[in-house]
Design a protein around this nucleic acid. Sequence first.
RNA 1: GUGGAUGUAGCUCAGUUGGUUAGAGCGCCUGGUUGUGGCCCAGGAGGCCGUCGGUUCAAAUCCGAUCUUCCACCCCA
Length: 421
Amino acid sequence: MAKFSPPPGTADIFPEEMPLWHRLEDTARRIFPLYGYGELRTPIFEFTDVFKRGIGDETEVVQKEMYTFEDRGGRSLTLRPEGTAGVMRALLNTDIMNGNEKRVFYIGPMFRGERPAAGRRRQFHQIGVENAGRVAPELDAENMAMMMQYLDELKISGAKLLINTRGVQADRKPAEESLNSYFQQHVGDMCDDCKTRVSRNVWRILDCKQERCREIVKNAPDYVSCYTAESRAYFDRVCELLTSFKVDFEIDKQLVRGLDYYAHTVFEVVHPGIGAQSAIAGGGRYELYLPENKKPIVGVGFAAGLERLLMVQETLNVAPPVSGKGPVFLVSMGTQARAFNMKLAQDLRSESVPVVVEVEDKSMKAQMRAANRANAAFAVICGDDELASGKLVCKDMQEGSQEEISQTELKSFLLKTYKGV
RNA sequence: GUGGAUGUAGCUCAGUUGGUUAGAGCGCCUGGUUGUGGCCCAGGAGGCCGUCGGUUCAAAUCCGAUCUUCCACCCCA
């Protein structure tokens, strides 16, 4: 039991739940190409510097959540805690830095050494999208529209899109100063965490959950007014476009995201009812520096947490995908019949008909029970009589009716019902 | 990393103020006359009561430690 449980924060995903996962993945593979995106697979671990530089040395993720280890050559490697940095590392091998746009998406596990809780795992799974190489409000808006279409296809209703702007690097200094001087005045009334945030990272104070801090945040200065007119126009354009796409959104000035590389638009999709971790997808525009890269890579993208999407689908009672027709269950009475059935099974499988055979010498009753449990569509019975007459008994498990049928007739019947041939 | 709950058969859970061979439902297995499932009936298998240590004549039940799971915080998807 406990002895055989997987490491904390990880989980085995069994065949029974796989259809739900495949729906998330298949939908991504169907929707994202409509916008010109292709799937990219990058390694699950990278050189540690890719994340240190890419995500930001100061971030919580990098400081205390990474699974870092040395390989035999003494290189420092890290299990990827997010997708963007690795994707950009891969795209650097293309001509992305010359203003060429790249559109890719990825699906896979991420690793963060946090304490597990509702919607938070140490190995979790994300589907993410990156549009790299160009800067344009059109791309930001399109990215969010695509994300919302994806969620819509997954029947995720009641999700709220929150957006905000972080401006560009030059905007942040004046904005930070204005926030700083305000919070300095209220330091005494803030929670312990926020007291240190005043000097370390004022932005974090904006999304503190403590009641007393929220009161203070309410009257915080409008830092966006410190941005340049250009940055504000960029954001306004993004909002206009979203409106014209009929994508509902809400501007949330308290939305700040934890990774250093964000610039301009940031956004998050939240859904109530899955616990404290209500963000099911999030992203934004970024300027990302990789080791030995003087110029940042620009792009816009988002990632959705698959476990959280599944949680939402569960609370919304989204119907599970309809499963296909159950298999053909071959019932054998006697060893000769079983040998016959084993061969027949191979023959049918080579024609893509799903077949299950009982290999132990069990009673007919037991085999029929097994057929029922396997959700078989048909049970085909073979015993001494059938071997002698050359006619098998085929029972429709749904109808309960059965008939004698020759092997060749059976085969063409099954091909027709399973493949429509 | 901090805090709060939790841990008994494959699953969901009972187990009274510590007292003999630890229970139920579901699931599983075998039967209910010769080779027919789902319903019903009967029987059966399956637990060192998370682990280690302590208190006691006696511990699933009390105490401690540890681990797991769950939830919250920090942070994020």
